[in-house]
Nucleic acid binder design. Sequence first.
DNA 1: TATTGTTATACTCTATAACTATA
DNA 2: TATAGTTATAGAGTATAACAATA
Lengths: 151, 151
Amino acid sequence: MKYHHDVDVTLLDRLLQIGELFQRDMARAFAGTGFTPARLRVLWVLQHDGAMTQQALAAELDVTPRNVSGLVDALEASGHVHRAPHPSDRRAVLVELTPRTARIMSRMQREHAELSATLLDAVAPADRAAVERGIGAIADRLAALVEDADA
Amino acid sequence: MKYHHDVDVTLLDRLLQIGELFQRDMARAFAGTGFTPARLRVLWVLQHDGAMTQQALAAELDVTPRNVSGLVDALEASGHVHRAPHPSDRRAVLVELTPRTARIMSRMQREHAELSATLLDAVAPADRAAVERGIGAIADRLAALVEDADA
DNA sequence: TATTGTTATACTCTATAACTATA
DNA sequence: TATAGTTATAGAGTATAACAATA
């Protein structure tokens, strides 16, 4: 979706544009590598929170357990994650990043932080504190609205 | 994806969270109505830019013409768009919103603007101008980075 | 020849429902 | 009984490639 020809672009439009640009860039960057957006989300969660069961993964990603089975199948086939037996529950498995993939994700996390810094750098120094406060307030307000609509 | 347990949430994380929350809310709001995200994007473009060929739609949405055929098929079957003959090119068709759907999209556009205002309202008055400037600067910087990566 | 849209085919993501093994 | 994960099935979104009609 392009924006350059819109006259009345709202603040929300700009915020959504940022999300779209980011996602498109990720998709292009990983096109043909087997790192699809859904699989990257799995790896991202495992990097952040460590090994967990598929149930926990399903709750964290807000998808069905069946969906997680498919994603983990693919990631296991490509050697990015490993299914380990759960130490105390023989029904469950622990999904964990392989060492090589953990290193890849650490690098991605670093690049993500660098991109964040680069973007903040585009903001006038005098505006930066206000922007950080404002974006936090907007995200919190939107989260509250969605929570309400959900209930 | 949840954020409440993260300690080092970057500015970019917050921005992406806003996009995720919005998309999730849209998906929940229209679940079971046939208004899927991809079809809504088609309607949104037609509302903004008016009737256009499927080629133009494909370029605007950044998907293949084949994909557009499927989306327009579904939207035509549900009575939301209409395929009209192109006045000067018999190969092409003009996809246009039906009157009823044009009214629905006008209402959505109004609600979208209202949500934008509500979110800006969550920002401290003294910060609002800086936030609007800052988000614009961030979006522009990211667009430039993606453009570079694309080339 | 080039362009518009469609048919053919395939893969990914996602969901629900029924089932197995274990708790 | 309840929970963890898988098999079966299905629909939506997406892509590439080959093709028909028209420019």
